[in-house]
C-alpha cells in the first residue's frame, strides 16, 4: 500500500513539467495568434487613441516577458486572469461552464457504454449473427454522421415534427430555476435539493444532446470491445477455462471481459478527453453553455486569458484522467502493479 502511495506521488510529480510546459506553450501560442485584442475590443469606431487606451487597460503595452511573469504570478495565487469578452474572471467562467460540459459528456459516455459494451460483447460472442451486423451498422453510422448533423436531425424529428422533446434551449427550460449550486451538475444538485421536478426537466433537456454525443462515441467503444473480446476469447486461458468446465458466464465475464476491458478503458479515456473539447457543435445546436463554445469564442476574439485558462483547465483534466485510468489498470489487471515501476 505504501508502495502504491509512493507510486501515485511519483506519477503526480511527473505531471509538474507537463503543466509548466502547457503554461509556457499556451502563453506563447495565444500571443502568436493573428489579431490584436486591443483593436478588437476597442470596437469598430475606435481611433488610434482609444485603441492605445484599451491596450494599456489590458496591460498589453508591456513587454512579453513582463506579461508572462505577471501572468505566472497571478497564476500562483490561483488567479487565471479576466476574460475580456465575458468581463468575468476566467475561473468563474470555467466553474460555470465546465460542469455543463462534463454533465453532458459523462451522461453521453454512460449511455454509450451501456449500449456499446454489451453490443460489442454480443457481437464478439455471436460473430456473423444479426447482432454483429447491427453492431457494424451502428458503428459505421456513428462514425460517419457528424454530430451537428445528428443533432439537427434529432431536433428536427423529435422537437420540430413530433414535439416530444422540449425546446433545445440549453440546460434548463426558462420556466425552471437552476437548483442551488453544490456540484454544478444540475442532475445531482436537483436531487440534493430534493427537487424532482427540476431533475426531470434537466433530464428532458439532456436527452437529445446526450443521444447525439452517445451516437458519436458509441463507435470506438463498441469496436474496441468487440475486437478485444474476440482476442480474449481466442486466447489460451479461455480454452483452458473451457476445458476445465467452467460455466459459460464465468468464462465470458470473469475471464473474457475482464481481460478485454483494458483496451476499452484506454479508449474510453481517449474518447472522453476528445469529446469534452470537441463537442462545440453539439453545444451550439442545443444552446448548451459549455466549455467548447466558450473556448472557440475566446479564440475568435483573441481573448488571451480565457484561451490560456481553457487550455490549462483541459491539461489538468487530462492529467487527472490519465492518472485515474492508470490506477484503474491496476484494479482490472493485477499484473500491472505500481510497485514494479
Amino acid at each position: 500500500m505504501a508502495g502504491r502511495t509512493r507510486a501515485i506521488g511519483m506519477r503526480l510529480a511527473q505531471t509538474v513539467p507537463v503543466i509548466i510546459g502547457v503554461i509556457v506553450i499556451s502563453f506563447i501560442l495565444t500571443r502568436a495568434l493573428p489579431g490584436d485584442p486591443a483593436v478588437y475590443f476597442a470596437g469598430a469606431m475606435a481611433d488610434a487613441e482609444s485603441i492605445q487606451q484599451v491596450r494599456e487597460a489590458l496591460g498589453l503595452d508591456k513587454p512579453l516577458v513582463t506579461q508572462f511573469f505577471l501572468y505566472v504570478g497571478d497564476l500562483a495565487q490561483g488567479d487565471l486572469g479576466r476574460s475580456i469578452s465575458t468581463g468575468q474572471p476566467v475561473l468563474t467562467d470555467l466553474a460555470a461552464r465546465l460542469p455543463a460540459s462534463l454533465e453532458l459528456t459523462l451522461s453521453a459516455l454512460v449511455l454509450s457504454c451501456l449500449i456499446a459494451i454489451p453490443l460489442g460483447v454480443l457481437a464478439a460472442v455471436r460473430q456473423g449473427s444479426w447482432v454483429d451486423h447491427l453492431c457494424r451498422v451502428l458503428v459505421t453510422a456513428g462514425v460517419s454522421l457528424p454530430t451537428f448533423f445528428t443533432g439537427i436531425l434529432l431536433v428536427y424529428v423529435f422537437y420540430y415534427l413530433l414535439g416530444w422533446a422540449p425546446s433545445p434551449l440549453g440546460r434548463l427550460d426558462f420556466i425552471y430555476f437552476e437548483p442551488p449550486r453544490v456540484t454544478g451538475f444540475y442532475l445531482v444538485d436537483s436531487l440534493i435539493a430534493g427537487d424532482l421536478e427540476t431533475f426531470a426537466a434537466t433530464l428532458r433537456q439532456l436527452t437529445l444532446p446526450t443521444i447525439t454525443l452517445a451516437l458519436f462515441t458509441l463507435a470506438p467503444i463498441a469496436r474496441m470491445t468487440r475486437a478485444a473480446m474476440l482476442q480474449a476469447l481466442s486466447s489460451d486461458y479461455i480454452r483452458t477455462a473451457r476445458a476445465a468446465g467452467l460455466s459459460r458466464g464465468k468464462i465470458l465475464f470473469g475471464y473474457g471481459l475482464r481481460n478485454a476491458l483494458l483496451p476499452v478503458v484506454t479508449t474510453l479515456g481517449m474518447v472522453f478527453s476528445f469529446v469534452l473539447g470537441a463537442n462545440v457543435l453539439v453545444e451550439k445546436v442545443f444552446a448548451w453553455p459549455g466549455i467548447g463554445s466558450y473556448a472557440v469564442e475566446a479564440l475568435v476574439a483573441s481573448d488571451y486569458a480565457a484561451v490560456q485558462g481553457f487550455v490549462l483547465a483541459m491539461a489538468f483534466l487530462f492529467v487527472t484522467l490519465n492518472l485515474i485510468i492508470d490506477l484503474s489498470y491496476a484494479l482490472i489487471d493485477p499484473r500491472i502493479g505500481f510497485d514494479t515501476k
Partner: peptide, 21 residues
C-alpha cells in the same frame, strides 16, 4: 422579456416556427 442565446441558426428557426419563442 427573456432573451435566450441560441447560437445555432437551425435551432432558432425550429424554435420560432414552433412558436416556443
Amino acid at each position: 422579456v427573456i432573451m435566450r442565446e441560441v447560437p445555432n441558426n437551425s435551432t432558432r428557426r425550429a424554435l420560432i416556427e414552433r412558436g416556443d419563442v
